[in-house]
Amino acid sequence: MTIWEVFVQTEGGDPFEHVGQVEAPNGDTATLAAKEHFVRRDPCVGLWVVDREDVRSASWPPDVLASGHEKVYRRSLGRGAPDDVLAGRL
């Protein structure tokens, strides 16, 4: 039995959102299961099922994954901030 991760797009233009998983022998039966389990009541324009084995998870810990988060020089300071303040922050 394969585990399939399920992604749903609610309306055109929305990102596909991970909603959970189903177990099924193949992609067709996984899609059949995912539709009735996850989008019985909600609007939906797109549905993906992905074999869990095909999902590649980055193995970096949170501090490595988020290392870009602290880089001040990539940030906008907002309207009105003088340009030399940006360089000054380095």
């Binding site: 189903v22 177990e23 099924a24 039966t29 059949l32 299961a33 009735e36 389990h37 019985r40």
Partner: peptide, 11 residues
């Protein structure tokens, strides 16, 4: 036969 199938049968 399975929870997944049962949900669909009911629908």
């Amino acid at each position: 036969p399975s929870l997944e199938i049962n949900v669909a049968l009911s629908s």
